[in-house]
Nucleic acid binder design. Structure first.
Lengths: 215, 215
DNA sequence: AAACATTCCAAACGGATGTTTTAAACATAC
DNA sequence: GTATGTTTAAAACATCCGTTTGGAATGTTT
Protein backbone atom coordinates (compact mmCIF):
# COMPACT_ATOMS: atom_id res chain seq x y z
CA UNK A 1 0.00 0.00 0.00
CA UNK A 2 1.60 3.23 -1.16
CA UNK A 3 0.91 5.97 1.34
CA UNK A 4 -0.19 8.81 -0.86
CA UNK A 5 -1.82 11.85 0.62
CA UNK A 6 -5.27 10.69 -0.38
CA UNK A 7 -4.75 7.39 1.41
CA UNK A 8 -3.67 9.16 4.57
CA UNK A 9 -6.54 11.60 4.47
CA UNK A 10 -8.97 8.72 4.14
CA UNK A 11 -7.35 6.86 7.03
CA UNK A 12 -7.40 9.96 9.24
CA UNK A 13 -11.06 10.61 8.60
CA UNK A 14 -12.03 6.97 8.92
CA UNK A 15 -10.17 6.60 12.20
CA UNK A 16 -12.04 9.49 13.78
CA UNK A 17 -15.45 8.55 12.43
CA UNK A 18 -15.14 4.85 13.27
CA UNK A 19 -14.11 5.70 16.82
CA UNK A 20 -16.98 8.14 17.19
CA UNK A 21 -19.81 6.16 15.60
CA UNK A 22 -18.73 2.58 15.09
CA UNK A 23 -18.14 0.73 11.84
CA UNK A 24 -21.61 0.02 10.53
CA UNK A 25 -22.78 3.48 11.52
CA UNK A 26 -20.09 5.16 9.47
CA UNK A 27 -20.67 5.28 5.72
CA UNK A 28 -18.05 5.68 3.05
CA UNK A 29 -19.72 8.91 2.05
CA UNK A 30 -19.21 10.35 5.52
CA UNK A 31 -15.55 9.38 5.36
CA UNK A 32 -14.84 10.69 1.89
CA UNK A 33 -16.64 13.97 2.47
CA UNK A 34 -14.76 14.53 5.72
CA UNK A 35 -11.49 13.61 4.01
CA UNK A 36 -12.44 15.80 1.05
CA UNK A 37 -11.73 13.08 -1.48
CA UNK A 38 -13.88 11.39 -4.08
CA UNK A 39 -16.20 8.61 -3.01
CA UNK A 40 -14.58 6.11 -5.36
CA UNK A 41 -11.16 6.71 -3.82
CA UNK A 42 -11.84 4.27 -0.99
CA UNK A 43 -12.61 1.37 -3.25
CA UNK A 44 -9.77 2.35 -5.57
CA UNK A 45 -7.12 2.44 -2.87
CA UNK A 46 -8.40 -0.11 -0.39
CA UNK A 47 -10.71 -2.34 -2.40
CA UNK A 48 -13.59 -2.45 0.05
CA UNK A 49 -14.91 -0.95 3.25
CA UNK A 50 -13.81 -3.97 5.25
CA UNK A 51 -10.28 -3.61 3.92
CA UNK A 52 -10.34 0.04 4.99
CA UNK A 53 -11.33 -0.96 8.51
CA UNK A 54 -8.43 -3.37 8.64
CA UNK A 55 -6.05 -0.72 7.30
CA UNK A 56 -7.10 1.68 10.05
CA UNK A 57 -6.20 -0.94 12.62
CA UNK A 58 -2.92 -1.82 10.97
CA UNK A 59 -1.71 1.76 11.02
CA UNK A 60 -1.58 1.83 14.81
CA UNK A 61 -1.31 -1.86 15.67
CA UNK A 62 1.88 -2.31 13.67
CA UNK A 63 3.82 0.32 15.66
CA UNK A 64 2.27 -0.92 18.91
CA UNK A 65 3.26 -4.48 18.20
CA UNK A 66 6.75 -3.33 17.27
CA UNK A 67 7.14 -1.28 20.44
CA UNK A 68 5.98 -4.22 22.51
CA UNK A 69 8.49 -6.60 21.00
CA UNK A 70 11.30 -4.12 21.54
CA UNK A 71 10.24 -3.63 25.14
CA UNK A 72 10.11 -7.35 25.77
CA UNK A 73 13.58 -7.79 24.33
CA UNK A 74 14.98 -4.94 26.37
CA UNK A 75 13.76 -6.57 29.58
CA UNK A 76 15.16 -9.89 28.42
CA UNK A 77 12.14 -11.67 29.77
CA UNK A 78 12.15 -15.28 28.85
CA UNK A 79 9.50 -17.89 29.29
CA UNK A 80 11.97 -20.64 30.02
CA UNK A 81 14.20 -18.76 32.45
CA UNK A 82 11.89 -19.51 35.34
CA UNK A 83 12.06 -15.88 36.31
CA UNK A 84 8.56 -14.64 35.83
CA UNK A 85 8.21 -10.86 35.81
CA UNK A 86 5.83 -9.18 38.18
CA UNK A 87 2.40 -8.64 36.70
CA UNK A 88 2.72 -4.92 37.38
CA UNK A 89 5.83 -4.72 35.20
CA UNK A 90 3.95 -6.27 32.32
CA UNK A 91 1.09 -3.81 32.65
CA UNK A 92 3.52 -0.92 32.89
CA UNK A 93 5.29 -2.01 29.74
CA UNK A 94 2.04 -2.36 27.86
CA UNK A 95 0.62 1.00 28.91
CA UNK A 96 3.95 2.68 28.29
CA UNK A 97 4.02 1.37 24.74
CA UNK A 98 0.46 2.58 24.23
CA UNK A 99 1.45 6.09 25.20
CA UNK A 100 4.45 5.98 22.90
CA UNK A 101 2.62 5.23 19.67
CA UNK A 102 2.98 8.11 17.26
CA UNK A 103 -0.52 9.54 16.88
CA UNK A 104 -2.00 11.53 14.07
CA UNK A 105 -4.67 13.27 16.12
CA UNK A 106 -4.86 14.90 19.46
CA UNK A 107 -6.08 12.38 22.01
CA UNK A 108 -4.82 9.67 19.73
CA UNK A 109 -4.56 7.23 22.60
CA UNK A 110 -8.22 7.59 23.44
CA UNK A 111 -9.14 6.96 19.84
CA UNK A 112 -6.98 3.87 19.57
CA UNK A 113 -8.41 2.37 22.73
CA UNK A 114 -11.91 3.13 21.62
CA UNK A 115 -11.21 1.36 18.34
CA UNK A 116 -9.73 -1.59 20.18
CA UNK A 117 -12.84 -1.82 22.32
CA UNK A 118 -15.05 -1.66 19.25
CA UNK A 119 -13.04 -4.43 17.64
CA UNK A 120 -13.93 -6.65 20.57
CA UNK A 121 -17.56 -5.71 21.08
CA UNK A 122 -18.80 -5.08 17.57
CA UNK A 123 -19.17 -8.45 16.00
CA UNK A 124 -17.06 -7.87 12.92
CA UNK A 125 -16.06 -11.33 11.91
CA UNK A 126 -13.58 -10.26 9.26
CA UNK A 127 -11.80 -7.92 11.68
CA UNK A 128 -11.47 -10.58 14.33
CA UNK A 129 -9.96 -12.95 11.85
CA UNK A 130 -7.59 -10.34 10.49
CA UNK A 131 -6.32 -9.27 13.90
CA UNK A 132 -5.91 -12.88 14.89
CA UNK A 133 -3.80 -13.64 11.84
CA UNK A 134 -1.68 -10.49 11.91
CA UNK A 135 -0.95 -9.77 15.53
CA UNK A 136 -1.55 -12.94 17.47
CA UNK A 137 2.15 -13.69 17.99
CA UNK A 138 2.89 -10.66 20.12
CA UNK A 139 -0.31 -10.87 22.12
CA UNK A 140 0.01 -14.57 22.72
CA UNK A 141 3.46 -13.94 24.11
CA UNK A 142 2.05 -11.36 26.50
CA UNK A 143 -0.62 -13.84 27.56
CA UNK A 144 2.12 -16.37 28.27
CA UNK A 145 3.92 -13.81 30.39
CA UNK A 146 0.71 -13.17 32.31
CA UNK A 147 0.37 -16.90 32.84
CA UNK A 148 3.91 -17.13 34.23
CA UNK A 149 3.23 -14.23 36.56
CA UNK A 150 -0.01 -15.61 37.96
CA UNK A 151 0.67 -19.28 38.59
CA UNK A 152 -1.81 -19.34 41.47
CA UNK A 153 -4.78 -18.87 39.11
CA UNK A 154 -6.70 -21.57 37.30
CA UNK A 155 -6.77 -21.26 33.53
CA UNK A 156 -10.40 -20.22 33.67
CA UNK A 157 -9.99 -17.58 36.35
CA UNK A 158 -6.93 -16.16 34.63
CA UNK A 159 -8.84 -15.97 31.38
CA UNK A 160 -11.65 -13.95 32.92
CA UNK A 161 -9.36 -11.67 34.88
CA UNK A 162 -7.55 -10.90 31.64
CA UNK A 163 -10.89 -9.95 30.11
CA UNK A 164 -11.74 -7.71 33.05
CA UNK A 165 -8.37 -6.02 32.67
CA UNK A 166 -8.84 -5.47 28.97
CA UNK A 167 -12.32 -4.12 29.59
CA UNK A 168 -11.29 -1.63 32.21
CA UNK A 169 -8.49 -0.38 29.98
CA UNK A 170 -10.42 -0.17 26.73
CA UNK A 171 -13.53 1.34 28.27
CA UNK A 172 -11.69 3.89 30.35
CA UNK A 173 -9.24 5.00 27.72
CA UNK A 174 -11.98 5.39 25.20
CA UNK A 175 -14.01 7.61 27.49
CA UNK A 176 -11.18 9.72 28.85
CA UNK A 177 -12.86 12.57 27.14
CA UNK A 178 -16.24 12.29 25.47
CA UNK A 179 -15.33 11.81 21.86
CA UNK A 180 -17.71 14.46 20.69
CA UNK A 181 -15.76 16.99 22.70
CA UNK A 182 -12.54 15.72 21.21
CA UNK A 183 -13.87 16.20 17.75
CA UNK A 184 -15.33 19.63 18.46
CA UNK A 185 -11.89 20.56 19.74
CA UNK A 186 -13.62 21.73 22.86
CA UNK A 187 -11.24 22.23 25.70
CA UNK A 188 -11.70 22.20 29.42
CA UNK A 189 -10.06 20.27 32.21
CA UNK A 190 -8.22 17.91 29.93
CA UNK A 191 -7.68 14.52 31.48
CA UNK A 192 -4.13 13.39 31.05
CA UNK A 193 -3.89 9.77 29.87
CA UNK A 194 -0.70 9.26 31.83
CA UNK A 195 -2.41 10.25 35.04
CA UNK A 196 -5.32 7.94 34.37
CA UNK A 197 -2.89 5.09 33.80
CA UNK A 198 -1.26 5.87 37.15
CA UNK A 199 -4.67 5.31 38.71
CA UNK A 200 -5.47 2.33 36.52
CA UNK A 201 -2.43 0.11 36.99
CA UNK A 202 -2.62 -0.24 40.80
CA UNK A 203 -6.34 -0.94 40.50
CA UNK A 204 -5.75 -3.74 38.01
CA UNK A 205 -2.74 -5.14 39.85
CA UNK A 206 -4.78 -5.43 43.01
CA UNK A 207 -7.52 -7.27 41.14
CA UNK A 208 -5.10 -9.59 39.39
CA UNK A 209 -3.21 -10.38 42.56
CA UNK A 210 -6.17 -11.01 44.82
CA UNK A 211 -6.48 -14.65 45.94
CA UNK A 212 -8.42 -16.84 43.54
CA UNK A 213 -11.89 -18.09 44.43
CA UNK A 214 -11.06 -21.37 42.71
CA UNK A 215 -8.37 -23.12 44.70
CA UNK B 1 -48.41 0.12 25.32
CA UNK B 2 -50.80 -2.79 25.31
CA UNK B 3 -48.86 -6.04 25.47
CA UNK B 4 -50.61 -8.05 22.81
CA UNK B 5 -49.09 -11.24 21.50
CA UNK B 6 -47.73 -9.55 18.40
CA UNK B 7 -45.93 -6.97 20.51
CA UNK B 8 -44.34 -9.65 22.63
CA UNK B 9 -43.28 -11.70 19.65
CA UNK B 10 -41.61 -8.65 18.15
CA UNK B 11 -39.83 -7.86 21.40
CA UNK B 12 -38.64 -11.44 21.81
CA UNK B 13 -37.20 -11.59 18.32
CA UNK B 14 -35.67 -8.13 18.54
CA UNK B 15 -34.05 -8.91 21.88
CA UNK B 16 -32.32 -11.99 20.50
CA UNK B 17 -31.22 -10.40 17.25
CA UNK B 18 -30.00 -7.17 18.84
CA UNK B 19 -27.94 -9.11 21.35
CA UNK B 20 -26.53 -11.31 18.63
CA UNK B 21 -25.75 -8.74 15.95
CA UNK B 22 -26.07 -5.26 17.41
CA UNK B 23 -28.62 -2.60 16.58
CA UNK B 24 -27.53 -1.27 13.21
CA UNK B 25 -26.77 -4.74 11.94
CA UNK B 26 -30.31 -5.94 12.66
CA UNK B 27 -32.96 -4.91 10.16
CA UNK B 28 -36.67 -4.70 10.79
CA UNK B 29 -37.20 -7.33 8.14
CA UNK B 30 -34.99 -9.77 10.06
CA UNK B 31 -37.00 -9.08 13.19
CA UNK B 32 -40.45 -9.40 11.65
CA UNK B 33 -39.60 -12.54 9.74
CA UNK B 34 -38.17 -14.16 12.87
CA UNK B 35 -41.21 -13.06 14.86
CA UNK B 36 -43.48 -14.22 12.02
CA UNK B 37 -45.40 -10.95 11.94
CA UNK B 38 -45.97 -8.41 9.24
CA UNK B 39 -43.29 -5.83 8.53
CA UNK B 40 -45.64 -2.93 9.16
CA UNK B 41 -46.43 -4.22 12.64
CA UNK B 42 -43.27 -2.71 14.10
CA UNK B 43 -44.07 0.80 12.96
CA UNK B 44 -47.71 0.34 13.90
CA UNK B 45 -46.99 -0.70 17.49
CA UNK B 46 -43.75 1.08 18.24
CA UNK B 47 -43.61 3.93 15.77
CA UNK B 48 -39.99 3.54 14.76
CA UNK B 49 -37.00 1.27 15.02
CA UNK B 50 -35.43 3.49 17.67
CA UNK B 51 -38.57 3.26 19.77
CA UNK B 52 -38.40 -0.52 19.45
CA UNK B 53 -34.83 -0.52 20.72
CA UNK B 54 -35.91 1.52 23.73
CA UNK B 55 -38.85 -0.81 24.35
CA UNK B 56 -36.52 -3.81 24.38
CA UNK B 57 -34.46 -2.11 27.06
CA UNK B 58 -37.43 -1.04 29.09
CA UNK B 59 -38.75 -4.57 29.30
CA UNK B 60 -35.78 -5.73 31.33
CA UNK B 61 -34.51 -2.47 32.81
CA UNK B 62 -37.78 -1.72 34.54
CA UNK B 63 -37.71 -4.96 36.56
CA UNK B 64 -34.00 -4.50 37.21
CA UNK B 65 -34.50 -0.98 38.49
CA UNK B 66 -37.38 -2.18 40.63
CA UNK B 67 -35.35 -5.03 42.09
CA UNK B 68 -32.54 -2.63 42.89
CA UNK B 69 -34.79 -0.25 44.76
CA UNK B 70 -36.33 -3.10 46.72
CA UNK B 71 -32.89 -4.41 47.57
CA UNK B 72 -31.73 -1.03 48.74
CA UNK B 73 -34.80 -0.66 50.93
CA UNK B 74 -34.41 -4.13 52.39
CA UNK B 75 -30.88 -3.35 53.50
CA UNK B 76 -32.12 -0.09 54.93
CA UNK B 77 -29.08 1.64 53.58
CA UNK B 78 -29.34 5.32 54.07
CA UNK B 79 -27.08 8.07 52.95
CA UNK B 80 -27.56 10.07 56.16
CA UNK B 81 -27.25 7.23 58.64
CA UNK B 82 -23.49 7.34 58.61
CA UNK B 83 -23.47 3.56 58.22
CA UNK B 84 -21.79 3.01 54.90
CA UNK B 85 -22.23 -0.46 53.43
CA UNK B 86 -19.26 -2.45 52.30
CA UNK B 87 -18.45 -1.94 48.65
CA UNK B 88 -18.68 -5.67 48.07
CA UNK B 89 -22.25 -5.70 49.36
CA UNK B 90 -23.20 -3.06 46.82
CA UNK B 91 -21.67 -5.00 43.95
CA UNK B 92 -23.28 -8.21 45.16
CA UNK B 93 -26.67 -6.57 45.37
CA UNK B 94 -26.36 -5.25 41.85
CA UNK B 95 -25.24 -8.52 40.32
CA UNK B 96 -27.84 -10.55 42.22
CA UNK B 97 -30.59 -8.28 40.94
CA UNK B 98 -29.24 -8.80 37.46
CA UNK B 99 -29.51 -12.56 37.86
CA UNK B 100 -33.01 -12.32 39.31
CA UNK B 101 -34.67 -10.60 36.38
CA UNK B 102 -37.38 -12.81 34.89
CA UNK B 103 -36.16 -13.91 31.49
CA UNK B 104 -38.09 -14.90 28.40
CA UNK B 105 -35.37 -16.95 26.75
CA UNK B 106 -32.87 -19.53 27.74
CA UNK B 107 -29.60 -17.79 28.55
CA UNK B 108 -31.70 -14.73 29.25
CA UNK B 109 -29.10 -13.35 31.61
CA UNK B 110 -26.38 -13.51 28.97
CA UNK B 111 -28.66 -11.69 26.58
CA UNK B 112 -29.44 -8.93 29.06
CA UNK B 113 -25.78 -8.52 29.87
CA UNK B 114 -24.85 -8.33 26.26
CA UNK B 115 -27.55 -5.71 25.69
CA UNK B 116 -26.37 -3.73 28.70
CA UNK B 117 -22.85 -3.83 27.37
CA UNK B 118 -24.01 -2.75 23.95
CA UNK B 119 -25.90 0.14 25.49
CA UNK B 120 -22.67 1.39 26.95
CA UNK B 121 -20.27 0.70 24.13
CA UNK B 122 -22.45 1.23 21.09
CA UNK B 123 -22.92 4.95 20.83
CA UNK B 124 -26.62 5.16 20.19
CA UNK B 125 -27.40 8.75 21.01
CA UNK B 126 -31.12 8.29 21.40
CA UNK B 127 -30.62 5.25 23.63
CA UNK B 128 -28.17 7.02 25.89
CA UNK B 129 -30.57 9.92 26.33
CA UNK B 130 -33.49 7.60 26.99
CA UNK B 131 -31.65 5.55 29.60
CA UNK B 132 -30.40 8.71 31.23
CA UNK B 133 -33.91 10.13 31.55
CA UNK B 134 -35.58 6.93 32.69
CA UNK B 135 -33.13 5.29 35.04
CA UNK B 136 -30.72 7.94 36.27
CA UNK B 137 -32.26 8.15 39.74
CA UNK B 138 -31.38 4.60 40.74
CA UNK B 139 -27.98 4.89 39.12
CA UNK B 140 -27.10 8.11 40.87
CA UNK B 141 -28.13 6.64 44.19
CA UNK B 142 -25.73 3.76 43.68
CA UNK B 143 -22.95 6.25 42.95
CA UNK B 144 -23.70 7.97 46.25
CA UNK B 145 -23.48 4.65 48.05
CA UNK B 146 -20.11 4.01 46.44
CA UNK B 147 -18.94 7.37 47.66
CA UNK B 148 -20.01 6.54 51.21
CA UNK B 149 -18.22 3.21 51.07
CA UNK B 150 -14.90 4.57 49.82
CA UNK B 151 -14.22 7.62 51.98
CA UNK B 152 -10.48 7.06 51.73
CA UNK B 153 -10.47 7.95 48.03
CA UNK B 154 -10.13 11.39 46.57
CA UNK B 155 -12.98 12.46 44.31
CA UNK B 156 -10.74 12.07 41.30
CA UNK B 157 -9.47 8.61 42.14
CA UNK B 158 -12.97 7.41 43.04
CA UNK B 159 -14.26 8.70 39.73
CA UNK B 160 -11.66 6.77 37.77
CA UNK B 161 -12.05 3.60 39.78
CA UNK B 162 -15.78 3.75 39.09
CA UNK B 163 -14.96 4.03 35.41
CA UNK B 164 -12.65 1.02 35.63
CA UNK B 165 -15.38 -0.97 37.35
CA UNK B 166 -18.00 -0.01 34.78
CA UNK B 167 -15.57 -0.78 31.99
CA UNK B 168 -14.72 -4.24 33.24
CA UNK B 169 -18.42 -5.03 33.67
CA UNK B 170 -19.71 -3.56 30.43
CA UNK B 171 -16.88 -4.87 28.32
CA UNK B 172 -17.13 -8.36 29.73
CA UNK B 173 -20.89 -8.39 29.37
CA UNK B 174 -20.91 -7.15 25.81
CA UNK B 175 -18.42 -9.76 24.72
CA UNK B 176 -19.49 -12.56 26.99
CA UNK B 177 -21.00 -14.65 24.22
CA UNK B 178 -18.05 -14.54 21.82
CA UNK B 179 -15.70 -15.08 24.74
CA UNK B 180 -17.68 -18.05 25.95
CA UNK B 181 -17.28 -19.58 22.51
CA UNK B 182 -13.54 -19.03 22.67
CA UNK B 183 -13.35 -20.60 26.07
CA UNK B 184 -15.44 -23.58 25.05
CA UNK B 185 -13.15 -24.35 22.17
CA UNK B 186 -10.15 -24.01 24.38
CA UNK B 187 -11.45 -26.22 27.12
CA UNK B 188 -14.71 -27.98 27.66
CA UNK B 189 -16.03 -25.81 30.45
CA UNK B 190 -19.12 -23.86 29.57
CA UNK B 191 -19.18 -20.39 31.08
CA UNK B 192 -22.42 -19.37 32.69
CA UNK B 193 -22.99 -15.77 33.73
CA UNK B 194 -23.19 -16.58 37.43
CA UNK B 195 -19.73 -18.03 37.38
CA UNK B 196 -18.33 -15.04 35.53
CA UNK B 197 -19.85 -12.76 38.15
CA UNK B 198 -18.31 -14.85 40.90
CA UNK B 199 -14.96 -14.19 39.28
CA UNK B 200 -15.71 -10.54 38.58
CA UNK B 201 -16.81 -9.27 41.97
CA UNK B 202 -13.68 -10.23 43.97
CA UNK B 203 -11.53 -8.80 41.21
CA UNK B 204 -13.33 -5.47 41.34
CA UNK B 205 -13.51 -5.38 45.13
CA UNK B 206 -9.77 -5.87 45.39
CA UNK B 207 -9.19 -3.03 42.96
CA UNK B 208 -11.63 -0.71 44.67
CA UNK B 209 -10.23 -1.42 48.12
CA UNK B 210 -6.55 -1.11 47.29
CA UNK B 211 -4.87 1.89 48.94
CA UNK B 212 -5.09 5.09 46.93
CA UNK B 213 -2.05 6.51 45.21
CA UNK B 214 -3.30 9.97 46.06
CA UNK B 215 -3.14 10.39 49.82
C1' DA C 1 6.38 14.67 -28.04
C1' DA C 2 4.39 10.40 -27.56
C1' DA C 3 3.25 6.50 -24.82
C1' DC C 4 2.22 4.70 -20.67
C1' DA C 5 0.58 4.04 -15.94
C1' DT C 6 -1.55 5.96 -12.16
C1' DT C 7 -4.82 8.71 -9.88
C1' DC C 8 -9.00 11.16 -9.73
C1' DC C 9 -13.83 12.27 -10.62
C1' DA C 10 -18.87 12.52 -11.79
C1' DA C 11 -22.32 9.52 -12.48
C1' DA C 12 -24.73 5.52 -12.24
C1' DC C 13 -25.80 0.68 -10.61
C1' DG C 14 -28.24 -2.73 -7.97
C1' DG C 15 -29.70 -3.65 -3.61
C1' DA C 16 -31.15 -2.98 1.24
C1' DT C 17 -33.04 -0.03 4.52
C1' DG C 18 -36.90 2.38 7.46
C1' DT C 19 -41.25 4.00 6.68
C1' DT C 20 -45.87 4.72 4.72
C1' DT C 21 -49.94 3.61 2.27
C1' DT C 22 -53.56 0.98 0.46
C1' DA C 23 -56.87 -2.56 1.19
C1' DA C 24 -59.07 -6.28 3.28
C1' DA C 25 -59.91 -9.46 7.13
C1' DC C 26 -60.59 -10.27 12.11
C1' DA C 27 -61.70 -9.59 16.90
C1' DT C 28 -63.97 -7.40 20.68
C1' DA C 29 -67.03 -4.23 22.89
C1' DC C 30 -70.90 -1.02 23.23
C1' DG D 1 -74.87 -3.77 13.81
C1' DT D 2 -71.83 -0.53 14.26
C1' DA D 3 -67.68 1.22 16.00
C1' DT D 4 -62.95 0.57 17.38
C1' DG D 5 -58.74 -1.41 17.48
C1' DT D 6 -55.62 -5.10 15.70
C1' DT D 7 -53.35 -7.94 12.13
C1' DT D 8 -52.11 -9.29 7.51
C1' DA D 9 -50.93 -8.65 2.83
C1' DA D 10 -48.71 -6.37 -0.93
C1' DA D 11 -46.83 -2.65 -2.75
C1' DA D 12 -44.64 1.59 -3.08
C1' DC D 13 -41.87 5.15 -1.14
C1' DA D 14 -37.70 7.85 -0.49
C1' DT D 15 -33.29 7.31 0.94
C1' DC D 16 -29.05 5.46 1.82
C1' DC D 17 -25.67 1.98 1.10
C1' DG D 18 -21.18 -0.24 -1.03
C1' DT D 19 -19.47 -0.82 -5.33
C1' DT D 20 -18.49 -0.17 -10.33
C1' DT D 21 -17.77 2.28 -14.55
C1' DG D 22 -15.70 5.13 -18.37
C1' DG D 23 -13.26 8.77 -19.17
C1' DA D 24 -10.64 12.93 -17.82
C1' DA D 25 -6.68 14.60 -15.51
C1' DT D 26 -2.04 13.98 -13.92
C1' DG D 27 2.56 12.46 -13.65
C1' DT D 28 6.39 9.57 -15.33
C1' DT D 29 9.11 7.29 -18.72
C1' DT D 30 10.87 6.62 -23.23
Amino acid sequence: MAYTETVDRILDAAELLFAEKGFSETSLRMITSKAKVNLAAVNYHFGSKNALIQAVFSRFLRPLSHLMEEGLKKHQWDLDSGQAPDIEQILRLYTHCLLDIPTRHENGVSIFMRLLGLAYTQSQGHLRLYLEEEYSVTFKFILMMVKESTPQLSTEERFWRTQFTLGAMAFTMSSIQPLTDILENKQGSKADPEKVIDFLVPFLVAGLKTPPIQE
